[in-house]
Amino acid sequence: MSIRLLALIPVAAAISLALSAAVDAVALPLFLDTTGTILATALAGPGVGIATGVVTSAVNTLRNPTFWPFVVVQIIVALYAWVAARAGLFRSFRTAVPAGLGLGVIASLTSTPISYFVFGCTTTGGIALTTALGRALGLPPVGACFFGSFVSDFGDKAVTFALVTSVLRALPRRTAARFPWALRAIGAA
């Protein structure tokens, strides 16, 4: 791995964790905690993306220990983002947003078993409350747990994909050219 890609991983992981400040300012129910993973994958491929996801989860775990089992979700997000980047889905919002919605479904399907069996669906306050709403709507326990994860992941991943598309479009060509996959992801190569 080149030294530039090594330097990219902690920056991308820190982006995922620091975006919470921007989210708090606009008071939207979003996490954006996979932004760095998706961005690193689009810029530098799946290896760098997976490493970014694992580092993000490891550092996030020090803040909240319940994050570690969800490292699997970060890895799946990186692999999905890699497929999306190769298919050119980051080239416009019209393709990026549906791709993000698709990731929302996959991410909630992946996180539901972890959330249900390890934590009884109580990983974060928001998810626990939407799970309680699912139970109140008459869903079975696992269904309510999926409902909780789905509500939080569906919109979150679509916004994350749109944000990464914005970044890739705004990135100067000279900067983009320094990362091995960036120009291909934005359709300039």
Partner: peptide, 25 residues
């Protein structure tokens, strides 16, 4: 409106962080 505001906040943060990668390398 909130999503537009989020873009205006997140984009400068992410772009400035990416520009740092070269210095770090």
């Amino acid at each position: 409106a909130r999503l537009r505001a989020l873009r205006a906040l997140a984009l400068p943060l992410v772009l400035s962080a990416l520009h740092e990668v070269d210095e770090r390398a």
